[in-house]
Simulated scan of single mutants.
Amino acid sequence: MKIQAIYTDGACSGNPGPGGWGTLVVFEDGSVHEMGGGDRQTTNNRMEMQAAIAALEYLKATGQTQPIPLYTDSQYLINGITQWMNGWKRKGWTTSSGGAVLNQELWQRLDALNSRQIQWTYVRGHAGNAGNERCDAIARAFAQGQVPHLQQIGPVS
């Protein structure tokens, strides 16, 4: 089965506070694979990043090489991966103001998983996009300490 699109989202109750993340992988035949998780003390940005890491790990495990749009409502995530990353690496993981890059370990994991295959695409949150809304619901459930029912197609073959 070929992946058609990936959606990711993160949520946090308080920032920092309990958080959750959700990922929706949509296949060309219409089937889906949902993933999610949470952390008792985190930030919204970390959860947005964790959702993308899970998505990219899943994609890598499939061996699929066709371009895939990854939809997120996090401008922090998109800007970090598409605009800021190279500068951070050149400057030894410091920001333009000289401070340490926050969430460096997660950025490094994203950098290792990222490729030209991924089409980082911004989608406005809470605007009726079904994939984004589903990821938001998964993320919010985990942030509230609940475990939502996740549709899963089974292990990646």
Rank of each mutant, 00 (worst) to 15 (best):
P67A: 15
R140F: 09
Q108W: 04
L110D: 06
T23V: 14
G99E: 12
M47D: 03
A61H: 13
L77C: 04
G30Y: 13
L59D: 05
D39N: 15
E105A: 12
S96C: 04
L150T: 07
P148T: 15
S157V: 03
A143M: 10
Q151E: 09
A55M: 07
A54Q: 15
Q104D: 04
V123G: 05
N79E: 14
L106I: 05
Y71Q: 09
G38C: 00
Q117F: 00
N129P: 01
A5W: 13
S115M: 10
A51D: 11
I68D: 06
I81A: 01
A130T: 15
Q151N: 12
G20W: 07
S74R: 01
L24N: 07
N45Q: 11
N79A: 12
S74Q: 02
A52D: 11
E133C: 09
A61T: 11
H149A: 06
Q152S: 13
W120I: 07
A52T: 12
N129D: 05
W84D: 00
I78L: 06
N103A: 02
Y7F: 15
Y71N: 13
A54C: 14
I118E: 01
I118M: 10
I81V: 05
G80I: 00
Y76F: 14
S96D: 09
G10V: 01
T65N: 10
T72H: 08
E133S: 10
Q144C: 08
E105W: 11
D73Q: 10
G17F: 03
K60Q: 13
R140I: 07
Q64S: 09
G87W: 03
L113H: 06
Q151T: 08
I138M: 08
N15P: 07
L102V: 06
E34L: 07
T42P: 04
W88K: 09
F27W: 10
